[in-house]
Design a protein around this nucleic acid. Sequence first.
RNA 1: GUGCCCGUAGCUCAAUGGAUAGAGCAUCAGCCUUCUAAGCUGAGGGUUACUGGUUCGAGUCCAGUCGGGCGCACCA
Length: 552
Amino acid sequence: MLDFFLPVIQNALHSAGVTTEKPIRIEQPSDKKFGDFSTNIAMLVAKECRRNPRELAQEIIPHLVFPPDTVAKIEVAGGGFINFYLSPLFIMRSVEQVLLDGDHYGKGGAGKGKKAVVEYVSANPTGPLTIGRGRGGVLGDCIANLLEAQGYEVTREYYFNDAGRQMQILGESVRLRYLECCGQNIEFPATHYQGEYIREIAEQMYAEHLATLEESSELDSFKKSAENIIFSSIRQTLERLDIRHDSFFNEHTLYTPDNKGVSANQRVIDALSSKEFIAAYDGAVWFLTTRLGQEKDKVLIKSSGEPSYRLPDIAYHITKFERGFDLMVNVFGADHIDEYPDVIEALKILGYDTERIKIAINQFVTTTVDGQTLKMSTRKGNADLLDDLIDDVGPDATRLFFIMRGKDSHLNFDVELAKKQSKENPVFYLQYAHARICSLLRIALEETGFDPSSCTETRLLTLLNSPAEVQLGFALLDYPDMIKTSLRLLEPQKMVEYLHSLAELFHRFYQECPILKAKSDICKARLFLSVATRQVLRNGFRILGVSAPESM
RNA sequence: GUGCCCGUAGCUCAAUGGAUAGAGCAUCAGCCUUCUAAGCUGAGGGUUACUGGUUCGAGUCCAGUCGGGCGCACCA
């Protein structure tokens, strides 16, 4: 719809003799009485033209030439807004496009021919997924869906490390629990993984091997078993939320030498070194970020000889460039906020186009149980496990609740609310609208034989002109722009809000306009409007990863 | 101490620099002989934490103050 207005306004400014560098902005006024669309361009340019903005707006209006029967009224309001009112006929005629495009309605071509990678979850296999990871997982998955809707070829990637110190500790933790199973009395260190799942893995190993591993001091079998079991549990949890990655990138591959005997990590050191951003002192190898105005240099290779996480991180991002991605989205939690600036700086120094990298950081999650707020990070035991939350409220509520707040807001997950099978629960409000339409169409088929797939009289939509009908139709036309906005902001929350308002408009239409009891043509027209609404709800639900129940 | 995020109705949250700051929940008042009342209509509720600044115009941008969260390792 925005594409519809922009050229007309550009032409009008040109033929009215107004020249400006300022971008033309078209917005939807919050209040319908200010029109369906509005532009503030007259106010923006008034100053540089030394003109009264209202007068200028009046002069521009005669130059605004729209196709016939599209814009019903144009007027100047407020301090110089130009407000546009679409004709109901135009709106309802446009709704036909929803029916024609079906599952593809709303998709755009902005990413056509482009490759994108979305990196999300990326938890190391040291334990089951927590609720906090869940938020990032759903956010990343929705962003990937949005990219696909814009035509990008999307790779969903999970970056992990199964070699570092944390995995070492994991292996030891399992071994100690295993020794307990063998009957030894162990003092379990506080630095090790305390979770009950460690004990379960140890018990499983004991069941397989009995005490045969008791004398051996090697950790590998403990590490490997733990990794396998934990990784498969992570993937199972993600699958419950319909999150599936295409690619699991093991950090360790960045350590292994290529056929010239040089690892990806080493290539980063060499490249940065040739730019004079590397120095060795205090037994370590440093990235000279003080040269960029930072307070301290950052360690790339520890005095132990092992790389710190920063080095493979840089090398990893280089692989994304080498793999030809046009767009790289990283999703992670607020605790990793300091992780990316150094990586970006290093990539810039090495000449990579860092504009292609987008970062989506989500704030933390707290849960409210029985009206009491619990902070996840301080919580021990099971309550912060993502699996338990899914058990409790189901996958649809889990997904929707994670994205119904802006990613920059701390999320307060009200478990009681998410469980409620009632109107207080926003999940049900949305899904109910869909189920209600399905039910309506079932009855329509039975009673009148109306079948949207075979009925071709979509032109009848133009018979509809009551406010409830036109507003619903207008909202349906908004959907493609909503996808673009959500993607630009990396904020699926916008989609949730949009779908909520769409559901609300449908309920109002349903309430005010009798459908099956209307005379034949009107009845068909209203059924088509309902079908179009169901289509947009479905398409939107698919992007959010929420199911579209046919009955409730 | 310092970097990032946040502070908006009783609660949870919206508001690409725009017009009278909006939803949901909760509260109150209405609407089912009629296609799902898991719905709809209406009412009340605000010094947008505070103080300055920028401009035609600030919840939004800038500076400072206060409050909350997350980081600030040769952990990832």
